[in-house]
């Protein structure tokens, strides 16, 4: 239950992060660490290098941009949850953060970190997908924007290249109607299944290797969720149908 040895780097700027990622083999970025450090403690992940971005100044802003709200890489989930700007422009994001683990975890965890970690059962990737947002990633080769629909590649996998770092996520403005509903065994646990409604769009989480967009009138179409000790595939499909109905009832 202790991390395996690694070399620790604490760069002072994003450019330094990019040059480290460009030159090091097998490096992982450490932001909030609320998902990565458990993986290190269990030794499910054993990267040779950890690039800690927490020392970088001015990378925790939450600001209005292009008709939406931008959340930088070091903005803690708790800060985004409490942000009046986010509550005004994108209240779906504020609501979703209440489902992300517990407040003590959100004090440290970051929004961009959750997106980069890409856990299929987590809320924020599905929120970004339902809203049609995007993320800005940077490397020594330059900067590019990845739309949510092209970001999630598989279980814990994104389309970021090994030398790229996510510097910002952008969530478009959305008023009513919106909803996020999930079913989990205990408050704060990962969802057995969950739905995000953004206007007329629907995204599902916990039922496929990545969050997926679905047709609100037939949300379970084509779904093949996996089963485990907590829920069978049939139960997950049942949950998707019930939660979708509730999300669109209002």
């Amino acid at each position: 239950m202790k991390p395996a040895p690694f070399e620790y780097h604490a760069p002072a700027g994003v450019d330094d992060v990019c040059s480290l990622l460009g030159s090091l083999e097998d490096a992982k970025i450490l932001a909030g660490g609320q998902s990565l450090i458990p993986l290190l403690n269990f030794r499910l992940a054993r990267p040779q290098h950890l690039v800690d971005i927490n020392r970088i100044a001015n990378l925790d802003r939450i600001y209005e941009r292009d008709g939406g709200v931008a959340v930088q890489a070091l903005a803690r989930q708790a800060a985004v949850e409490d942000s009046e700007l986010v509550a005004r422009i994108c209240p779906l994001l504020s609501a979703a953060l209440g489902f992300v683990a517990h407040r003590v975890i959100r004090n440290r965890g970051t929004v961009c970190g959750s997106l980069a970690h890409a856990d299929a059962a987590s809320e924020l990737p599905a929120v970004l997908l339902a809203l049609g947002g995007n993320v800005v990633v940077r490397s020594s080769r330059g900067e590019r924007t990845i739309p949510a629909g092209e970001l999630f590649a598989g279980v814990f996998e994104t389309t970021l290249a090994p030398d790229e770092v996510m510097v910002e996520a952008w969530f478009p403005a959305l008023g009513e109607p919106f909803a996020i509903l999930e079913e989990s065994r205990r408050h704060g646990d990962f969802a057995l299944a969950g739905v995000v409604r953004a206007g007329s769009r629907l995204a599902l989480f916990g039922v496929a290797p990545t969050p997926v967009l679905a047709d609100p009138s037939d949300p379970a179409s084509g779904l093949q969720p996996s089963g485990d000790l907590e829920a069978t595939p049939e139960f997950r499909i049942h949950l998707v149908r019930v939660l979708t109905e509730r999300a669109f009832a209002a």
Binding site: P3, G33, Q34, I37, P38, N41, A101, R103, V104, N107
Partner: peptide, 23 residues
């Protein structure tokens, strides 16, 4: 030691955090 039980909670700059999930 993976952030679930909360026993190791301490305050970091006044805010509670899991000390097992920080180096």
């Amino acid at each position: 030691e993976h952030g679930v039980c909360g026993c190791c909670t301490v305050l970091l700059d006044g805010a509670p955090v899991r000390s097992c999930l920080m180096l």
